[in-house]
Structure formats: structure tokens, C-alpha cells
Design a protein around this nucleic acid. Structure first.
Length: 549
RNA sequence: UGUGGUGUCGCCAAGCGGUAAGGCAACGGACUCUGACUCCGUCAUUCGAGGGUUCAAAUCCUUCCACCACAACCA
């Protein structure tokens, strides 16, 4: 199929054809303050793919410039998710923004010497007042005119730990009247005595994102810095930093920022804050709960990196704010799994069927294809005995219109085996159907009836003597609403995870391994749970067009 | 009342002056030993709205309108 155009590709191709860039270099800069989700995957994909496509390099860089929010657990998880998603270690390397602290400090000293930065003693509240509003210009800080020498001294003392948190900041001297709020003398350094997850207490001053990010990009020789659209009005500041920190950077050796719209999906919350809340309040089974939109959750649920990439590419990389339907993601997964997943039989609600005219102790073997459309995937033997299980919902003694499955007195095909007819319905005292007595068309076997009669329905079955007991987790959508509103809790789908016990599975599933994906015939796609042995997680259901009406 | 950005089918999305691609969803129908898959068909006289330029406009000009982001010592 045709994928939507990717404007980043257009930009890069122009840069290459213009001869301004020879080696493409991109990066994905997550803050290690949570797990990556499918929204992050879009940023990874756009940066990774651009580098891959044009023979460049892709870096992973932890943007760890805020000691209060970052943890080692996330550092590890993020890397695993990226390697899983892209299928390789970041070719350009793995970096930490915090490793640039020394450089950032030197550049800040340079800015002070160039009279482009100053130490400001305004409190947070005062600074807000001085900044002005969206419609009113700000006014200059009284500390803006400090001498270079004084600024140098003060900044050194900030670094030396002389001041408490919040006592002062280093600010870029730009323009307090700029219509762009980001340019009104933004703070570029703040004091924070919280120990850093990698630097310990080596630093008590930390560069802010707008200052550190372009420096990190430049130091890593990033050519195309693709980020989401909320940073669009930060671009002038990004460029200001590059221009004022580095000497006459040309396009060849300067990073440029490009923006794309972030991913929103129906029935899905991307906010890390809320995802964390779900984890912390125990509403889900961790960041990798199979219902979570996190990469680890999707992975545990059985999603493949290729399906995610396909989905992302189909949704496209425009700048328009949008909400993509999860149906598209699910479609991509189904499409891949339909072509690759081995077919297996699972009977979720077993109903015993006795084949009256089948010998008591005989075990017959039928060979079923592992995949109806791909003979290369081989076959497997399915034992058949007098007593079998079928799906309770595949029988009805009060069938709705167009019910093509088993009903009293009519025939149905047991997939890959006999045609059977229901002769008798056995009930217990309460009236519940407990068993069906059927006869099989032994003569026809698993072939086509010679008298030309057509058998409309096919149902799946399992020999009662040759199956294993299992549990499966069936997952629905975590949220009930298409677009989840502010009060996320209101939209939580309480039935999004259902454990189904007493499930009968075909024997071959005994050796199923994590990472394998199967289609449980007529039901959906499943994979062994990587955390709980013996449980199968549903990846995505099969679509059904059966409408009794 | 500021700056930047975005508005093309229910949802994404191509298109970049030559007369509206594609995908998802939906709906018909065919096929089927998975009511799956596959297949075939239907689904924007119209591109946020109004004006203008042009033989020709979703594409150019213009005036509006709507939505998103920005006033952290977060990223």
C-alpha cells in the first residue's frame, strides 16, 4: 500500500541534494522519568527511520537534566524498549545529557563573558511578573545589567553550592519584549541540591531543557532534531543557543529542529503522569500490563515491532493535531498475524459431545493444516476420540436466524474431521445442557459428502482425552471512551481484563514459548504471558460479521 | 488583545495551478472445512467560510472563522 508522505524525508532529501548535509544524524531524547509508550514510538520511528533510510546514524540520548524526576529503572527499560522496537542497539551510540554538564557549564561562562547571560536573583513569582503576559511585553530584570565579573563570580558560587535551591538562576539575555514568551530572558540554569541519578552530588546547578538540548544535539553532531510540535515555539530559542554558543555554525555542522504532531489514539491515554498513576494505584499490573499503551505492555500483549511500525507509517507524520483510531493499530496487528500465526484450537467454554457411533476406545488421527493459506507452515496431528469438546456457543437448541453451527437434527463439520449430527441433548436437573449425543458420518470422514449435500457450518473441537487445561487472559480496551477526557478514571473499563478459566487447549500448545503467536480458531490471536506461566494473553480478537438479526 | 502552528470523507492522510490517491471504519455482494482470511462493489461535484485572480484554484491573493501550543527555576 501507499504510505502517507513523510515531510521529514522531503527535508532531508533536499538537504542532501543541496549538498549541505552528507551524513544524516538523528536522535531520540527521552527523559528517564517513565516507560516509553506508543506515542514515544512515533518519535523513535521518525528519527530512527530517517537515519536508517539515508544511511545515517541514530542516537539514544537520555535527557536527564532534572535530578528530581529521573530514575535508573527507567533508563534500563527505555533502552530495552528501543532495542525491541528498532531491532538494534542505537547505531550512533547511547548518551546521557548529564555527561554534557561540564560543556554546558563552559558554554554558560562563555555566554556570560559575551554579555549574553546573567545571574538573576528574582524569585519565581517575581520572574513571572516581570515576564509579562501573552499580550503584554515583559520588563527587564533589575539584575540584567550586572557586570561580567559579577556574573562570573556569582555563577561560580552557584556552582560551588553557596546558594539554596531557588535563590537565583542564570538567564539568557535575549528580549523581554519578544512576542514569543520563550525568548523573554529564559532561565538556562537553576539550582537544585537533589542528587542526580548518575552525577550524584557533583552538581547542584542544572541546565534547563531549552539550553541543554541544542548543545547536546550539537555535541552529538545531530543534523536533524525531530521533536513534537509543542516545541515549535521553542525553535527560535534553540537556534539562539546554537548561534551564540558555537562560533559561526554552518548548516553542515549545526543541528536543526523539525516538528511533527504527537500521536493521539482513541481509547488511549498517553500522558505519562496518568500512566504512572495507574501503575501506582495498582489499577493495572505494572507498566507492562498488557492493556497499557506502553511499549512493554504492547510487547507483553504480543504486539510486534513490525506491526507498530506499520501502524505509525500508515497514520503518517503530519503536523496536524489528530486522534488516530486504535482500530488502525489493531488492523495492522491482525494483518500481520493472519499471515503468520499458527492456527490452534482452544475451547473456552467446553461442552461435551459424545459420538454415539464411534468406537469407545479408538483414537483416530486427523491432520490439520497449521495455516489455511500457507502450506509451508505444515500440519499437525489432532487425535479424535468418542468424546470431544466443542464450544458451548457453537450449539443452540433455539437457534437465531442464520445460525450455521450445531443445532438439533442438523449437520455441522468438525474442523478437519467428521461431519456430525446432533441427535440428543442431555440436560441436568436444572435444565442446563451438559452433553450432546451425536452421530458422525463415518463414511465421509473428513472428505466431501458424495451425495452432494452441503454442510454450511464448521466448528472447532478437541478430543476430551487429548487436551490440556489452561487459563487465558482476554483483554479489551482499557478505556471506554473514544477520546478519553480529563477525568481519566471515569473512562476506565472495569472489564478490560477478563481471566477465562477451564479452557481446553490442544496438546501442541504445551510447548508454546514466549514470543510465539497463535490464532485460536474463530477467537483471536494469543501469546503466552511472559510473566505468568501457563496463561495466554489475547493480542487482538478476530473480527466477526455474524449478526443473528 | 500577542506569537507560532493546524484546518481535505466518521478517523488518519496524499495533493503544492490542470479539474479530489490510499489506508482504517462502515455498508452491500461473492467465496470459504475459521461467520476469519481473500475477492469484488459502494462510500467528498468537493477541500473551515466568504470574496478575488485565472481558460482552469484544495492548491495563488484577501478577509474572516475554528482548533492546538506558549506566561515552570519541567521536558
Amino acid at each position: 500500500m501507499d504510505y502517507p508522505a513523510n515531510f521529514i524525508h522531503d527535508i532531508i532529501e533536499k538537504d542532501i541534494s543541496d549538498g549541505v548535509i552528507t551524513k544524516i544524524h538523528t536522535r531520540f531524547p527521552p527523559e528517564p522519568n517513565g516507560y516509553l509508550h506508543i506515542g514515544s514510538a512515533k518519535a523513535i520511528r521518525i528519527n530512527f527511520e530517517a537515519a536508517k533510510r539515508y544511511g545515517g546514524l541514530f542516537n539514544l540520548r537520555y535527557d536527564d537534566t532534572n535530578p528530581e524526576r529521573e530514575e535508573e529503572e527507567y533508563v534500563k527499560a527505555i533502552r530495552e524498549d528501543i532495542v525491541w522496537l528498532t531491532g538494534e542497539e542505537p547505531a550512533g551510540g547511547v548518551f546521557f545529557g548529564s555527561d554534557c554538564f561540564e560543556k554546558c557549564y563552559e558554554f554558560a561562562v562563555k555566554l556570560i563573558k559575551d554579555e549574553k547571560a546573567y545571574v538573576c536573583d528574582l524569585t519565581g513569582e517575581e520572574m513571572r511578573e516581570y515576564r509579562g503576559t501573552l499580550t503584554q511585553a515583559g520588563k527587564e530584570s533589575p539584575y540584567r545589567k550586572r557586570s561580567v565579573a559579577e556574573n562570573l563570580d556569582l555563577f561560580a558560587r552557584m556552582k560551588g553550592g553557596e546558594f539554596p535551591n531557588g535563590a537565583c538562576t542564570l538567564r539568557a539575555k535575549i528580549d523581554m519584549t519578544s512576542p514569543n514568551m520563550n525568548m523573554r530572558d529564559p532561565a538556562i540554569y537553576r539550582i537544585n541540591h537533589t542528587p542526580h541519578h548518575r552525577q550524584g552530588d557533583r552538581w547542584c546547578i542544572y541546565p534547563l531543557y531549552d539550553y541543554a538540548h541544542p548543545i547536546q544535539d550539537a555535541l552529538e553532531n545531530i543534523t536533524h532534531s525531530c521533536c513534537s510540535i509543542e516545541f515549535e515555539n521553542h525553535r527560535p530559542l534553540y537556534d539562539w543557543v546554537v548561534d551564540n554558543v558555537f562560533d559561526n555554525p554552518t548548516r553542515e555542522n549545526r543541528p536543526c529542529q523539525f516538528e511533527f504532531a504527537r500521536l493521539n489514539m482513541t481509547h488511549t491515554v498517553m500522558s505519562k503522569r496518568y500512566l504512572r498513576e495507574l501503575v501506582e494505584t495498582g489499577l493495572v499490573d505494572g507498566w507492562d500490563d498488557p492493556r497499557m499503551p506502553t511499549l512493554s505492555g504492547l510487547r507483553r500483549r504480543g504486539y510486534t515491532p513490525s506491526a507498530i511500525a506499520d501502524f505509525l507509517d500508515r497514520a503518517g507524520y503530519s503536523k496536524a493535531q489528530s486522534v488516530v483510531a486504535v482500530d488502525m493499530l489493531e488492523h495492522c496487528m491482525r494483518e500481520e498475524l493472519n499471515a503468520s500465526a499458527l492456527r490452534k484450537v482452544a475451547v473456552t467454554e467446553p461442552l461435551l459431545v459424545t459420538i454415539a457411533n464411534f468406537p469407545d476406545d479408538k483414537t483416530e488421527t486427523f491432520s490439520l493444516p497449521n495455516h489455511p493459506g500457507d502450506p509451508a507452515l505444515g500440519k499437525r496431528d489432532m487425535p479424535f476420540t468418542k468424546q470431544i469438546y466443542i464450544e458451548r456457543s457453537d450449539f443452540s437448541d433455539n437457534p437465531p436466524p442464520k445460525f450455521h453451527r450445531l443445532k438439533p437434527g442438523t449437520e455441522v463439520r468438525l474442523m478437519g474431521a467428521y461431519i456430525i449430527k446432533c441427535d440428543e441433548v442431555v440436560r441436568d436437573v436444572s435444565g442446563e445442557i451438559v452433553e450432546l449425543i451425536c452421530t458422525a458420518d463415518i463414511e465421509t470422514g473428513n472428505g466431501v459428502p458424495t451425495d452432494g449435500r452441503k454442510i454450511k457450518g464448521t466448528i472447532h473441537w478437541l478430543s476430551a482425552a487429548h487436551c490440556i487445561d489452561a487459563e487465558i487472559m482476554q483483554y479489551g480496551r482499557l478505556f471506554t471512551e473514544e477520546e478519553v477526557g480529563e477525568n481519566y478514571a471515569d473512562f476506565l473499563n472495569k472489564d478490560s481484563a477478563k481471566k477465562i478459566t477451564g479452557v481446553k487447549l490442544e496438546k501442541s500448545l504445551e510447548s508454546a514459548k514466549a514470543g510465539e503467536r497463535f490464532q485460536f480458531v474463530r477467537m483471536g490471536y494469543f501469546t503466552p504471558d511472559t510473566k505468568n506461566g501457563g496463561i495466554f494473553n489475547s493480542i487482538v480478537d478476530l473480527k466477526s460479521s455474524y449478526r443473528p438479526s
